[in-house]
Design a protein around this nucleic acid. Structure first.
Lengths: 339, 339
DNA sequence: AATCTGAACGCAAACGCTTGCGCAACCAAG
DNA sequence: CTTGGTTGCGCAAGCGTTTGCGTTCAGATT
């Protein structure tokens, strides 16, 4: 039925071990024999069984990638980039889509990647328990997006600096009532929303602005959530003249809410996002750009390096550059009294 | 180092075969023994080696998913949905991201999924050669998105009907100069752009409108491409008063181009897209909605069914519903002479 | 009481590779 | 012509499961 290494060996008149060595470029095979075996293997359409070879060798040539919400632009883009690096290096990727709390829990208790992968890349930093579970796998670990974590090589950005630049931009334009749409909920215990919020508060304090709890709302990192959050903020007794959304998707939701309320952007309300989503340019959204695909690529590369050079100590954390991109959703507030 | 089935067997005082049967719910094990084995296995943190078990059984409990451009909303969403179905059924997914022609070619010649997967789901229909390669794997095959193809269970939509409804909508509004931004280029040989174009031409013919080659441009299915294409169309001696873009992303690119040219939508130019992208609502884009996640879910389900009931003949093609969603980017053309 | 029947379990042979080791055959050096 | 060292290859023992078959033993049947 399916052609095995023995079929190739027989057809080439050599032993199975020689076939194995020849096809994998191992020494101990003369050039002529190797060429002949390669030809025979090609003719027979032979592919080594991954199960058998990884059972025998202990290496799987497979990388486990755990990611939440693959459908979202951010994670999809990171995944896309990381996959390209892995497959170019000859690794397959096993994908685990951990959106809901249940699937997430099930994954970390059952750990289906055990004995199946040579390394794990986590998009989004796992919490302490989850990290411990992953460490128990005994394979190199990396994470794209997030802060440092023991046992992991993580690539991320300076969330504080990014959020600061966004909020400071609004302050510099003259805004005093600055709202924030955060993204704290969900099953993901990460530092990003916390860091961005702290930056927001810090900049306000720095500018001598008293923070108003009524100007904070949760947008759940989705467009719909952003729309709801913006609607909430507009319902405040004194609505904001500017809003910092912790992600572009939420910012776009906010834009929709503003349009529904017949408010003009940036004339009535300024909006700044975070991520530089591929469509942010389309809607003219001012935002904090971060290298999204770049983080996936970098994390994948670092992981492969650990696989290639097992001895060396991997970097604990690498930080990618960010920059504020000014577009058309931010402007000075309207003069007081003009309504 | 790592705990094997023999460790469990020894600790439970039974043979390895009994452990195997017990843990997989096979008959031939008393309830007490099974319970005891389960407890011991849990205590030891035992997980069966997938390599070993698939080598012995021939089943991998893994599904290969090949997809182009995971980072794009459409494919990311389909993949997300399909993955959820697979993982809920206990299958792992092996992801192959086939964006560039090179990776695509390499995949189909080397077929790294051989002996590695129980079934293959292809997002985007493969061409004839590629289909033949996949069929040679001897496993169930499905595709999400596209028309019927021998050996495959494919779920898709009626592209012609969808495109017809979009273009007819423009015609009904009174437009006569209707442009199209198509998405034909790239390494993907699929029927979608062809079908949608044909529908466009048919509707025009039906309305007695002479098609103008200068009103067709390729947008490569990307935002940037759509922008370029729109710019091209605007450069025509007699620019269109309405544009049908074969995808929402291209439509958004078109919107951007129009804004750059200081043209108002829909006053100066109407735009209709295709897909109902999650952000289409934000920008108010009129579009043809299709169940994107739904197609992924459905294709995955049908594939699993084939795995569960090997005998039954799977459906060759299932068609999902579409509908035109009217928003704010389409309106009647301005009266003649008014510029 | 002898026989038959299942149920419950163990034995051992695969599954298809990898790899340490052994063994020729060859070459160059003494 | 003997040594010692390479080089090229085969042997066989795993790797950790699954599974067909054989065995044991308790309980039911004559």
């Amino acid at each position: 039925m399916t052609v095995s290494i023995n079929d190739v060996a027989r057809a080439a008149g050599v032993s199975a071990s020689t076939v194995s060595r020849a096809l994998r470029g191992r020494p101990g095979v003369s050039d002529e024999v190797r060429a002949q075996i390669t030809a025979v293997a090609a003719r027979l359409g032979y592919t080594a069984s991954r199960s058998a070879s990884s059972l025998a060798s202990g290496r799987t040539y497979t990388i486990g990638v755990v990611a939440p919400y693959i459908g979202r632009w951010f994670f999809g883009t990171v995944l896309d980039a990381a996959e390209q690096v892995f497959s170019a290096a000859g690794y397959d990727v096993l994908l685990y889509n951990l959106g809901s709390p249940e699937t997430r829990k099930r994954f970390f208790t059952k750990l289906p990647v055990r004995k199946r992968v040579d390394a794990v890349l986590s998009l989004l930093i796992p919490d302490e328990d989850e990290s411990a579970a992953l460490r128990s796998l005994g394979v190199p670990l990396a994470a794209a997006v997030g802060g440092p974590r023991p046992g992991f090589t993580v690539v991320g950005i300076d969330d504080r600096a990014g959020a600061e630049s966004a909020v400071r931009h609004l302050v510099n334009l003259g805004h005093r009532r600055i709202g924030m749409i955060s993204g704290t909920s969900g099953p993901l215990h990460w530092t990003t929303p916390v860091a961005r919020r702290q930056a927001y508060l810090d900049v306000l304090a720095d500018a001598g602005i008293e923070p108003d709890p009524a100007l904070e709302a949760d947008g759940e990192y989705t467009v719909e959530g952003g729309e709801r959050a913006m609607t909430e903020l507009l319902a405040a007794s004194r609505p904001p003249t500017a809003v910092f959304a912790q992600s572009d998707e939420m910012a776009m939701g906010a834009l929709r809410a503003l349009r529904r309320h017949r408010l003009r952007v940036p004339d009535d309300v300024s909006v700044v996002g975070f991520d530089d989503h591929e469509l942010s340019d389309v809607v003219g959204l001012t935002t904090v750009a971060q290298p999204v695909a770049g983080q996936g690529t970098e994390a994948a590369r670092l992981l492969l390096r650990q696989l290639d050079e097992p001895g060396t100590e991997p970097p604990g954390h690498v930080e990618m550059p960010i920059r504020l991109v000014l577009r058309e959703t931010t402007a000075p507030p309207r003069p007081r009294g003009v309504q």
